[in-house]
Design a protein around this nucleic acid. Structure first.
Lengths: 178, 178
DNA sequence: ACTAACATGTAACCCGTTACATGATTAT
DNA sequence: ATAATCATGTAACGGGTTACATGTTAGT
């Protein structure tokens, strides 16, 4: 159910094609949601059948034709109503934690490598989040209401990223003593 | 693929029934993985067909008969080998963040309530994690290698819980000014 | 010649959730 | 009486991943 609402949320900013959305999921949106292009195209068709989106075919030359989607009034309403439905907190299923549970003298070297590469990846995304924050969200209380929401999502990413890095340090320290 | 390995990891400690496992997923294991009993029973049958577990029927009086599962040698090996397969970091899909992205004057009161209840839930689980840590893991470097791994998983839960609470505070502070 | 970007799709499969089902014993 | 615990299961559905497919244009 939620992918539908993520897509509609993304379309609040303006009309987009499935391809545009797929690219957003690889970058900005991707920080807190992921979806393949197959999933996105399927969902877009469902949403149009539902009357929540309307798609317009746009012929192009030199490129394949595309379908641009926008929110309908019904879509807007559906999105607003969805906000008030209950959501259960989702447990993060991280396979790396399962592996750590199986820590042994034999596999410790491998796990150190895997943690180190996670750490490196997180340092990169964190740098990006922080850049975005410093550029557009440096004065949170001066933002519009809507932007405040976006800022808080960004903040969640930054804080949990920082926490993750701190944890990686702790892990590496303990593992290196084995 | 991963549920299979979580189950096998749980069986490292000793033989268990599907019911036992389901209860673990509601408590200890549940802090970093979740699975319904239907999923567990299905997975156990698959694992037995695979030769990774062996199930023994145990007749009982006054209670339904049960099947106790234990790891086979092949299962042990499969689990150890799995450690060395690459895992991609998984993005947490949290619907609440999607909702926050849709923040407005109209829904802010509702979102404050939802964040507050998340906060309360987290305070509870955090208290439990910390109790476990203080009781069994207060001297990390003195633990056996295997227990060190378990400790690090627990630490991940505690640290990310603390971070989550800090974030909730930030959110509530900003939202209450709207 | 080859790769990347643009743009969309089908098909098979696996993983997970929800709803429904059974049936005895023990505790309130 | 009623609910909770023990113990396992079927069936339908929905969400998500992987593999495969098509075809143009622009850049190295």
């Amino acid at each position: 159910m939620a992918l539908a609402h993520v897509i509609m949320t993304a379309l609040l900013e303006g009309e987009q094609t499935g391809y545009d959305l797929a690219r957003s999921f690889d970058t900005s949106l991707g920080f807190f949601w992921q979806a393949s292009h197959q999933q996105i195209y399927a969902e877009l068709r469902k949403l149009e059948e539902n009357g929540w989106l309307n798609g317009t075919e746009v012929p192009q030359q030199g490129k394949p034709d595309k379908v641009v989607y926008g929110l309908t009034t019904a879509g807007h309403e559906a999105l607003e109503n969805w906000i008030y439905t209950a959501t259960r907190p989702s447990v993060t299923k991280d396979e790396l934690l399962v592996k750590l549970y199986n820590l042994s003298e034999k596999n410790v070297a491998y796990l150190i490598r895997e943690i180190t590469s996670r750490q490196a990846a997180m340092i990169k995304s964190l740098a990006l989040y922080e850049k975005i924050r410093d550029k557009n969200y440096s004065h949170p209380h001066k933002l519009s209401t809507r932007k405040k929401g976006v800022y808080l999502v960004l903040l969640a990413g930054i804080q949990s990223g920082e926490q993750y890095l701190a944890w990686c340090d702790d892990v590496l320290q303990l593992l290196s003593s084995i």
